[in-house]
């Protein structure tokens, strides 16, 4: 390992200013923050979200990592080309793809079955990053529940239906293959 190596990015800590080095101002500002929250909670402005009575606000649905969906292209077909990149990238090994020859001329393969075990998934978003055609995406649906384990294993139809449910609120991040936002 050389420090001049281009693969190594050296990040230096920000220099401490006089307030940081004197300890006391920062200590006081930390206490002020806590005290402000204390006073706010006494005045009825709570930080705590009373889920499920109250729905949490998701700041940016496009970067939230919730339930997966399989995107459809403009003709309504599954966008996936069964390249196995997501299944390879998945650290939890929760994606199971069976590929077969594509009935359409624009690609060689398509997923005959595409199964994600949502109980095994750790919602890291690496499948989304690995996908070369932006077919798999994580939505902002966070309240995933089920009555059995089998129910939580999502097949292709279910993943496509998640897309149908969420496509209006969360537009696809790209419409062309390989064109990521």
């Amino acid at each position: 390992m050389k420090s001049g190596d281009h693969d190594i990015k050296w990040l230096d800590d920000p220099k401490l200013g006089i307030a940081e080095r004197l300890y006391v101002p920062l200590i006081l500002s930390g206490l002020t923050t806590t005290f402000r929250h204390l006073v706010n909670s006494l005045r009825g402005r709570y930080v705590t979200v009373s889920y499920p009575e109250e729905e949490p606000q998701i700041d940016n649905p496009l970067i939230y990592r919730g339930v997966h969906r399989l995107n459809r292209d403009e003709r309504g077909r599954v966008k996936c080309v069964a390249c196995f990149m997501c299944a390879t990238a998945c650290p939890a090994h929760c994606i199971d793809i069976v590929a077969s020859e594509s009935p359409w001329p624009d690609r060689d393969k398509y997923p005959q079955s595409f199964v994600i075990d949502e109980l095994r998934c750790i919602f890291c978003g690496m499948c989304e990053e690995a996908c070369p055609v932006d077919a798999i995406e994580l939505t902002s649906l966070y309240n995933l529940t089920g009555r059995s384990r089998e129910e939580m294993v999502f097949d292709k139809e279910k993943l496509l239906s998640v897309f149908d449910r969420t496509k209006d609120q969360e537009p696809m991040q790209s419409t062309q293959p390989g064109e990521a936002v």
Partner: peptide, 23 residues
């Protein structure tokens, strides 16, 4: 005393090896 101590503390809170040491 607090000011003196503050000024005498190092400017960074970093304990990683120096770049020169890595080289």
């Amino acid at each position: 005393a607090l000011v003196v101590v503050g000024l005498a503390t190092p400017r960074v809170a970093d304990n990683r090896p120096l770049r020169s040491a890595v080289d």
